[in-house]
């Protein structure tokens, strides 16, 4: 659905300052269906990439295609919708007038417009404010209207840039429900976010960006699996004695005051793990040790730059 091939974006700054590379030689693709998270710290190049996908910004080099069409062409935007990070609306229009205007932009047949506006306003729980001017809306309400406009028509792909920023917990829950509904309806969602909780709970796949470059692309579960730090076995004192864990050199052994022994092996290819398997011992517990998703996505060793 979305393909970026060796895309770079360099912003030429003022005379005295150096050009800024927002995105460098970036290649990734987003397949149809499901929810793909676009993750990275501030200044990683997420918004610039999204703008290039939408054709709002021209890449300095490389190629961006959307639904098989070059990004920026009206045909490419035929079946997509966009939710910006900040809601931007005409303050002189009411919610209904705004959606009517956008129905015209999306070429939704005149006869369908009223029912379509009813549907999306109901979905974002703003039906009661349809006649109110957008300037009287709170930021959270404007963001819900922003989501409503993206749901107009029948988009095949919705691109969102930090859609949940500025939402209260109820709004966030509402958006999460909408995300799940979209997944069920077969609509592809590609959204950028900082929020680990959203990535873990909503995303099927992630594209991770760091300093304008691709860091990871793929299944979220695989990413979590890759972050394994080892296996932790909790043994009784007798089991520990039987296995002679204190004699192991490739494990970290700690004894608790209650006599239970915790053994941490870095991998399953370990002499102690073999001993446990051979002796057919049933430990008190076996637990994989993983880095948190936050640690995986935002490597603290990697210095982050604000752009």
């Amino acid at each position: 659905m979305i393909t970026l091939e060796n895309v770079s974006k360099i912003y030429n700054a003022a005379l005295e300052s150096k050009p800024v590379t927002a995105v460098a030689d970036l290649s990734f693709s987003v397949q149809a269906g499901g929810i793909t998270g676009f993750v990275g710290p501030n200044g990683a190049g997420k918004t610039t990439s999204i703008k290039m996908i939408l054709g709002l910004v021209q890449p300095s080099t490389g190629k961006v295609t959307l639904m098989g069409e070059p990004a920026g062409s009206p045909k490419a935007r035929q079946k997509i919708s966009y939710v910006s990070e900040q809601p931007y609306f005409y303050e002189h229009l009411t919610a209904e007038e705004t959606l009517k205007f956008l129905c015209e932009m999306k070429d939704i047949p005149k006869g369908d417009r009223t029912s379509e506006i009813d549907r999306v306003l109901e979905k974002v729980e703003l039906s009661h404010r349809r006649k109110a001017k957008v300037k009287t809306f709170s930021k959270g309400m404007q963001q819900r209207l922003n989501m409503a406009q993206a749901l107009l028509g029948k988009p095949e792909l919705i691109i969102m840039d930090e859609p949940m920023s500025g939402l209260d917990p109820l709004g966030r829950r509402l958006f999460r429900d909408i995300f799940r509904d979209l997944r069920q309806s077969g609509i592809t969602v590609f959204f950028s976010t900082h929020i680990i909780d959203d990535i873990e709970n909503l995303c099927d796949r992630v594209v991770v960006l760091s300093k304008g470059k691709l860091k990871y692309q793929g299944d979220i579960q695989k990413l979590i699996d890759q972050s394994s730090k080892g296996i932790e076995y909790r043994l009784t004192g007798d089991q520990a004695k039987q296995l002679d864990v204190h004699g192991s050199t490739d494990c970290k052994v700690t004894t608790a005051p209650d006599g239970t022994v915790t053994v941490v092996a870095e991998s399953t290819e370990n002499s102690l793990v073999s001993k446990i398997t051979e002796a057919k011992i049933l430990p008190i517990s076996i637990m994989p040790i993983r880095s948190s998703l936050e640690e995986v996505l935002y490597d603290p060793k990697e210095p982050q730059e604000e752009r």
């Binding site: 939408l54 009206p74 919708s81 966009y82 931007y88 609306f89 932009m105 999306k106």
Partner: peptide, 14 residues
């Protein structure tokens, strides 16, 4: 500057 242009520029119109 107000970014309201995004409302139109992201729609399928030249």
């Amino acid at each position: 500057s107000g970014r309201t242009i995004y409302l139109m520029a992201t729609k399928p119109i030249p």
